[in-house]
Amino acid sequence: MTYSLQFGQIMRDIPYILGGAWPTLWLTFVIFFAAAALGLFIALVRLRGGPVTSRLAGLWVTLTTNSPLFVILFFLFNGLPNCGILLSPIAATLIAFIAISSGYLAEIQRGGIQSVRQSELDAAETLGMSRWQTVRHVIARHVIKTVSPALSNFFIFTMLGTSMASLVGVNELTGRAIEVTSRTFRSIEVFSIVAIAYVVLSLAASMALALVGRMLFRVRMRVV
């Protein structure tokens, strides 16, 4: 027992470490929305595409949801340079995360789309709704209602996942923690601060998502 907690030594570094929340947040947002758009496209192809294209979409989902993100990231960052493709840490992170997340998000959104019953579409048609009105008032409502808890879970999952980007050299929360630790050796102090930062960030995100769901779509979601 020679280690004693000394937060004083890292006081000057705390703003820098917590500043890592910004890269974490924007990475999360970019990855989530890009992957959600891609996932929606894949889900639609899977449901409505021709025999070959829907197979391909299914294959993409199987491949992405069964591959570890960390290994993909390593593969892109350390494996591809040997084939002459050199990716920056951010590029490798974005490609790996968006690719993998698109598979999960496609499955989530497919479930949502399938939750719309044919009888409701018929009812909309009987009421003389246009295609756009049907999508807006009938399909979108259903999809959002069934999908939003899973989506908000996945958003948090993405946020926590971005910590892996630190391992290819992205300077987000965890990356900065590793950097400060190697400089000051106050490992436990630094990492407990980062852990608290993640808890606070993800709680705030959960609450914000629950609020958005309730205000815009009248979906009730549990935060804790």
Partner: peptide, 21 residues
């Protein structure tokens, strides 16, 4: 709630450093 909201990588490092202590 806490362990569902900390990235596994951070948990791993924390356990590692705490164990070494």
């Amino acid at each position: 709630e806490v362990f569902r909201r900390i990235p596994f990588l951070v948990t791993l490092f924390l356990v590692l450093y705490a164990a070494q202590m």
